[in-house]
Simulated assay, not measured.
Amino acid sequence: MNAIAIPKPLARPHKLRFWPLQIAGWLGYLALYFTAWMGESEPGAWRQFLPVLLANTAFGFVNTSLLRLAYQRIWSLPLPRLGARAAALLLAATLVQGTFYATIKTLTCTGHDCMVHSMLGYLWYYISTLYVLLSWSGLYFGIKLARQSQEQKEAALRATSMAHEAQLKMLRYQLNPHFLFNTLNAISTLVLDHKSDTANRMVTSLSSFLRYSLDSDPVQRVTLAQEIEALQLYLGIEQLRFGDRLQVRIDVDVAARCALVPSLILQPIIENSIKHAVAKREEGGRIEIEARRDGDALDLRLRDDGPGCPDFDAPTNHTGVGLANTRERLRVIYAARQQFVITNREPHGADVHIRLPFETAVRA
Rank of each mutant, 00 (worst) to 15 (best):
S205N: 04
A166G: 11
S213F: 11
F312E: 03
L184D: 00
F181Y: 14
D311G: 10
L330T: 08
D253T: 12
P78L: 12
H353C: 07
K144H: 12
L246R: 06
D351I: 09
T106M: 02
P268H: 02
K15Q: 11
L180H: 00
S216I: 06
R281H: 07
F312Q: 06
T35Y: 05
N317K: 08
L27E: 02
A199D: 06
M38T: 12
H348P: 01
S263Q: 09
S205Q: 09
L302C: 09
L16G: 07
L180Q: 05
I6H: 07
R158N: 02
R331W: 00
L356G: 02
A102Q: 02
V261G: 05
V278F: 04
Y101D: 04
K144V: 11
G60H: 05
G111S: 07
I354E: 00
A70M: 12
A225M: 09
A159V: 10
T316M: 04
I74H: 01
L10R: 15
L120M: 13
T343S: 12
L66I: 14
F312G: 04
G284M: 09
A350T: 15
L123N: 07
T110L: 08
Y125H: 14
N56D: 08
G98K: 04
A259F: 01
I289R: 04
S196Y: 07
R81F: 03
G28K: 09
Y334V: 14
L95N: 03
R147H: 07
P7I: 10
Q239S: 11
R363E: 07
L300P: 10
L50G: 01
F141E: 08
H353D: 01
E227Y: 03
G83Q: 08
R337H: 09
L32C: 08
G306M: 09
F59C: 13
L330Y: 03
A166S: 13
V96M: 12
E151K: 04
G306L: 09
D296E: 12
M202P: 08
L175Q: 10
R241W: 01
E283N: 11
A364P: 14
L30P: 04
Q220M: 13
D294Q: 14
A279T: 04
I104W: 04
Y334L: 11
S216C: 13
L77P: 06
T103W: 10
A256Q: 03
E40S: 13
L16A: 11
R81Y: 02
R345I: 05
R249C: 00
L27T: 15
A45I: 08
L30I: 09
T94W: 01
I187L: 01
G83V: 15
R73N: 08
Q48A: 06
T64Y: 04
E40A: 13
Y212L: 14
Q152G: 01
S65I: 10
P268V: 06
A3G: 13
I6D: 02
G138S: 06
D304E: 03
T198F: 00
L139K: 01
S207T: 15
V362I: 13
A84M: 12
F312N: 10
Q338G: 04
P347K: 11
G44C: 01
R85K: 14
K15I: 12
D313A: 15
N182A: 11
Q148F: 02
E283R: 13
L190C: 01
R355E: 09
L233W: 00
L298W: 02
